[in-house]
């Protein structure tokens, strides 16, 4: 039998509201079943599911919020890695904080200011424009339709700075490209797993927005008349994962 302390530690990973409502009931039942490794795995998966299902905002607004947050995180990572990251990096960070707080009306001017003072991108980056447009849409929605997000999202720039990876440039080191593909693949797989738990389209929509911007960025940066087999494989696999997220959401919505 596994110690009750371990179960209580895992329960701390659940949203506080869920823990308050179900925590003791789960512990009591675990004591009765005798627990075990299988229960630990289910409890850990349950924590992820509880977070995925804890969103009460409409999936369309939440998916858009999540999608542009990931794009803004990616941009902030790029700024932090660049040698000329100055005041615009701080403005993007401010935008991120306001987005995490669920305040698009305040984040909108911060995002616009970051673009105003920021350097011109060459090749042009569609990301900031998509973030701006997304924030504008969210700002027009009633306040209750945009929720807060976890501060853990701010760990993303830290990870990206630790693994500074040029995305798809033709001469990039293949190992770096593989890490890049792994990071993006991991995000898309996370989107599928979260979709399976939340049983709606919010993560699938976020993944689709993210992929759309990635494809546009790649197209603008490489200016290629043709894509290599590697590019096709990458975008093909990513598109499949996005479609899989939508398919999972469609199927899971109909299962009780």
């Amino acid at each position: 039998m596994i110690d009750e302390t371990l179960y209580r530690r895992i329960l701390r990973l659940y949203p506080a509201s869920y823990r308050a409502g179900r925590g003791e009931e789960i512990i009591t039942t675990l004591r009765e079943t005798g627990g075990g490794f299988r229960e630990v795995v289910a409890l850990l998966t349950g924590a992820f599911a509880a977070h995925a299902r804890s969103r009460t905002t409409p999936w369309q607004a939440d998916g858009l919020h999540l999608g542009i947050l990931v794009i803004a995180l990616h941009r902030e990572s790029g700024e932090l890695m660049g040698v000329d990251g100055g005041i615009d990096a701080w403005l993007i960070m401010l935008t991120l904080v306001l987005m995490i707080l669920g305040r698009p009306r305040l984040a909108l001017p911060a995002a616009a200011a970051s673009m105003w003072v920021g350097h011109d991108y060459f090749p042009p980056d569609p990301g900031p424009w998509v973030v701006l447009a997304g924030l504008l849409v969210l700002a027009l929605l009633p306040r209750r339709h945009v929720g807060r997000r976890s501060w853990l999202w701010l760990a993303v720039p830290a990870v990206m700075v630790t693994f500074p990876v040029p995305m798809f440039y033709l001469y990039a080191d293949i190992r770096k490209v593989l890490i890049s593909v792994a990071v993006q693949g991991a995000f898309l797989l996370l989107a599928i797993a979260a979709t399976a738990m939340s049983r709606d389209y919010r993560w699938a929509l976020a993944a689709a927005i993210w992929m759309g911007v990635e494809v546009a960025r790649f197209h603008l940066s490489e200016q290629l008349a043709w894509y290599s087999t590697r590019d096709w494989l990458y975008f093909g696999a990513s598109a499949l994962l996005v479609v899989a997220a939508f398919a999972v959401a469609y199927r899971r919505r109909k299962v009780v």
Binding site: R22, L30, E39, V41, A42, L43
Partner: peptide, 18 residues
């Protein structure tokens, strides 16, 4: 049914009014 899975199902069933 593992305990955490049971309560996830119970949450869904409550939401569906079953």
């Amino acid at each position: 049914i593992p305990v955490a899975t049971l309560y996830r199902a119970v949450d869904r069933l409550q939401e569906a009014g079953l």
